[in-house]
């Protein structure tokens, strides 16, 4: 049990981490847009553009569509924002020195990522639009497809620490600190090199979770269903949704970097943060290239792909962890 002072400290830290996540996501979002524009031989937007888009939305009028359920229509963007803020707070910025009570385990992170998707499903159905419903049901199929490979790939690093038996830890900080040292020759001791197939599976699932092609933008495919779940949204509520979606550039890349790329381990305070952010940026650039280079698949392909190829990658690594080679 914590004292009130501890709680106040944690809340202050919460806002600090959110600030960091916000500014990183802003930058990463600009890199994403600029880079994909350059890859498509366009000029691309200026650096203030991602945030200007959101601010513009907050200046618009508030309204609720006639066929919507008012309470859930307003609640779901707030829920999405709240869930992604907690997620960005629970994933430590590259350092294993994260205050004790905040070391929430990987299962909690997994469940909050589902909660984030839940907000979009409820939004689609509460808005009373057909496109919203189609988008929402696609979102559910995506959750189902991604969940099993994602769970396995998230847990593999911590299972590799424990190898069964009693002394186990699902804490993400233990995973970060276990990646110190070198693996073979000069290769660092990252889980990327120890379990490469699991890393690929996690990369694909996170790509999908952050609305990147080839799978990620199926629930909001513009040419087919307009904006999917968010078709009926506009004004400040859409702004909140866009703000929540902005944080994906931080949350999902940070998760990958912490689990498989060693976070910022091996450096002292200001540098470990910088190294961590640099690694995150590399992942963003990688994701952008995949996004631009690929076309959109059909929703049934997602189900097939993730529950065959991606699951096979994850299961192979899981068997390696359990058998211990």
């Amino acid at each position: 049990m914590q004292t009130v002072f501890d709680y106040l400290f944690i809340i202050a830290l919460y806002f600090a981490v959110i600030g960091l996540a916000f500014f990183f996501s802003w930058g990463a979002s600009w890199v994403f847009r600029k880079l994909s524009a350059r890859l498509q031989a366009r000029r691309g937007p200026p650096a203030y553009q991602p945030i200007a888009d959101i601010i513009k939305l907050f200046g618009k009028e508030r309204f609720t569509p006639a066929l919507s359920n008012k309470f859930l229509y307003i609640l779901s963007p707030l829920l999405a924002l709240s869930a992604i803020l907690i997620l960005s707070f629970m994933i430590p910025p590259g350092t294993p020195l994260w205050p004790g009570p905040l070391a929430f385990d990987l299962i909690v992170i997994l469940y909050f990522s589902v909660m984030f998707s839940l907000a979009f499903v409820i939004a689609g159905w509460a808005s009373g639009s057909t496109w919203g419903k189609i988008g929402a049901s696609r979102e559910v199929v995506m959750i189902l497809s991604v969940e099993l490979p994602l769970a396995i790939a998230l847990l593999i690093p911590s299972l590799a620490l424990a190898r069964g038996g009693f002394s186990f830890s699902l804490s993400i900080t233990d995973v970060i600190s276990a990646q110190q040292g070198t693996f073979i020759w000069i290769l660092p001791n990252w889980f990327l090199f120890r379990y490469p197939l699991a890393a690929i599976a996690l990369f694909l699932t996170l790509l999908t979770k952050s609305w990147m092609r080839p799978f990620g933008d199926i629930p909001e495919a513009e040419q087919e269903i307009f904006a999917g779940s968010l078709t009926e949204y506009g004004g400040p509520l859409l702004g909140i949704f866009e703000l929540a979606r902005l944080f994906r550039f931080y949350v999902f890349t940070a998760l990958f970097v912490d689990l498989y790329l060693g976070g910022g381990v091996g450096f002292v305070f200001p540098f470990d943060l910088l190294i961590f952010l640099a690694k995150c940026l590399v992942i963003v650039i990688l994701m952008t290239i995949v996004h631009v280079a690929s076309a959109r698949y059909r929703i049934s392909h997602v189900f097939k792909w993730f529950l065959t190829v991606c699951l096979a990658f994850a299961l192979f690594s899981l068997i390696r962890v359990l058998v211990g080679f």
């Binding site: 809340i11 919460y14 907050f58 924002l81 709240s82 907690i86 009570p101 909690v108 400040p236 702004g239």
Partner: peptide, 25 residues
């Protein structure tokens, strides 16, 4: 390692932040 009361507090703060943003104008 599972302080659910803290999580509930943070979730509530997040909802408040969202609501303030919604009503700000």
């Amino acid at each position: 390692s599972l302080d659910l009361f803290l999580l509930a507090t943070l979730l509530f703060i997040g909802l408040i932040v969202g609501y303030v943003l919604y009503r700000i104008k």
